[in-house]
């Protein structure tokens, strides 16, 4: 084989190849009512789910899963700002104190779902909103900004209610899918199961590049069956939020 032939065989058209990005964003309530057992349980549940999340991501090497986290209490800020490859993702513990500025969290996420920085070749982002209470700012305005974006509308939106004081109406508005209700976590065990479900089953569904006809109105990612959880009244009352 001549040198010239070798060079010709190596010719390939175009630029660098790349897998499709899948942005996964935790949106977490760090208001004062989350202090104590709830925030500790949330930190534990997300940290525990990371290895399973990494396994799911490895099973589908054609999606580049990138994780971030937003926290909201008095205002909202990025807890983990850099989109972090799932293989390198580490959870940093959250603290709880202050109000419930959930609307500002929506605005913060909306800022990152614009194109750019998003691209049209991304997989649908996964947004997981976790809260134990009611917004203290203008949630509707923040949600409207998110939902006016193409990727806001197309995102897989999951809502987890912690304890019985969580505002289900707000979470339902966020989810905006009649087939999917907020997940009610009344104790630490239930929270672990829901966080794990989102981190594995939902992530797996969102990362599979399977096209669907537009007539499937509930969204372009099939939502997997919900996890079975323990009924709260079988537990010690002290463990129930």
């Amino acid at each position: 084989m001549t040198t010239t032939t070798k060079i010709i065989e190596k010719k390939r058209p175009g630029g660098a190849l790349a897998t499709r990005p899948l942005h996964f964003i935790w949106i977490t309530d760090c208001s004062g009512s989350m202090a104590g057992d709830k925030i500790q349980s949330l930190n534990h549940a997300i940290r525990e789910a990371i290895p399973a999340m990494q396994t799911i991501a490895q099973e589908n090497p054609y999606a580049n899963v990138l994780i971030r986290a937003v926290k909201f209490s008095d205002a909202a800020q990025w807890h983990i700002e850099e989109p972090t490859p799932v293989a390198e993702f580490k959870w940093e513990d959250l603290d709880a104190d202050g109000l419930t500025d959930m609307g500002k969290a929506m605005l913060l996420v909306a800022g990152q779902l614009k194109m750019p920085p998003m691209t049209d070749r991304a997989l649908p982002p996964v947004l997981v909103l976790i809260s134990d209470g009611q917004p203290t700012d203008d949630f509707d305005e923040g949600l409207a900004k998110l939902m006016e974006l193409p990727w806001g509308k197309k995102a897989v939106r999951i809502g987890i209610a912690i304890g019985e004081d969580a505002d289900h109406d707000v979470l339902e508005k966020f989810i905006n899918n009649p087939d999917l209700k907020p997940l009610q976590a009344n104790n630490a065990e239930q929270l672990v199961r829901y966080i794990r479900w989102v981190s594995t089953a939902v992530l797996k569904s969102a990362s599979a590049p399977a096209s669907q006809a537009k007539l499937e109105t509930a969204g372009n990612v099939p939502i997997p069956p919900l996890p079975q959880v323990t009924i709260a009244n079988t537990l010690d009352v002290a463990d129930v939020w």
Binding site: D120, A122, L123, P124, P150, W151, K154, P209, A210, S211, Q212, A213, K214, L215, E216, N220, V221
Partner: peptide
């Protein structure tokens, strides 16, 4: 031009209405 209605895995289709 690209169809702005389509994003993610969603597509119009021969099996549409």
């Amino acid at each position: 031009p690209p169809d702005s209605r389509l994003l993610g895995n969603e597509t119009t289709s021969l099996c549409g209405k």
